Simulated assay, not measured.
Amino acid sequence: MKKEKVSYRFYPYEGKVLSAKREISFEIKLTSRLILDELCFNWNKKMLEEKINQSIQNGNKDEFKSVRELYLQYIWE
């Protein structure tokens, strides 16, 4: 059996270099999404509570009713 001789010749690559991105695991994506959702929920609820308190202090019943409807969605379970 003949032995085959293999020779390699390297040429410099002149194109644009691609870089691979590392995939983020599903658990990290889910955890970060849940944390952001909870932060947004708490912030929105706090702002609605402040608007309700402000409308009570000002005696504005129409504003209170409209904000109350939005706030009920946050306390409904």
Rank of each mutant, 00 (worst) to 15 (best):
I35F: 12
N42A: 12
F10G: 00
E50D: 15
N44M: 10
W43C: 05
N60G: 05
E27H: 12
L48V: 02
I56K: 13
E38P: 00
N58C: 08
E49L: 13
T31G: 07
S25G: 12
S25D: 15
R9N: 03
M1S: 13
I52V: 13
E4F: 05
V17E: 11
N53F: 05
N58Q: 13
Y74M: 05
I56D: 11
R68A: 09
K51P: 02
K46T: 02
E63C: 04
E49P: 00
S32N: 15
E69D: 10
I75L: 13
Y13H: 09
M47H: 14
E27G: 06
L72I: 05
K61S: 10
K46W: 10
L34A: 05
M47G: 00
K21V: 09
K3C: 04
L30R: 14
I24T: 08
T31D: 02
W43A: 12
V17K: 12
M1I: 10
K5D: 06
E50M: 12
N44T: 06
Q54V: 07
I24M: 09
E38M: 14
T31Y: 05
M47L: 14
V67G: 00
K61I: 10
S7M: 10
L34N: 09
K65R: 10
E23N: 04
K51Y: 14
E14C: 07
R22E: 04
Y13F: 12
E14G: 09
Y11S: 08
Y13P: 01
L70K: 02
K21D: 14
S19N: 10
S32T: 13
E50P: 03
E69N: 08
S7C: 08
K3Y: 06
W43H: 08
S7Q: 14
L36G: 05
K2E: 15
V67E: 03
I52S: 03
R68H: 06
Y8F: 14
K51A: 09
S19E: 13
R9M: 04
R33T: 10
F10P: 02
N53C: 04
L30Y: 07
N58E: 15
K51S: 10
F41S: 01
N58R: 13
D62F: 02
V6D: 04
A20G: 06
S19C: 06
G15Y: 04
K45I: 01
R33C: 02
L36A: 15
S7E: 15
S32E: 15
I52Y: 03
Y71S: 01
Y13G: 00
E50V: 12
E50L: 14
R68I: 13
Y11M: 09
N60L: 09
N44V: 01
Y8M: 07
L48H: 01
E4C: 04
F64D: 01
K45N: 02
I52F: 05
Y11N: 08
E4W: 03
Q57C: 03
M1R: 15
W43G: 02
I56G: 01
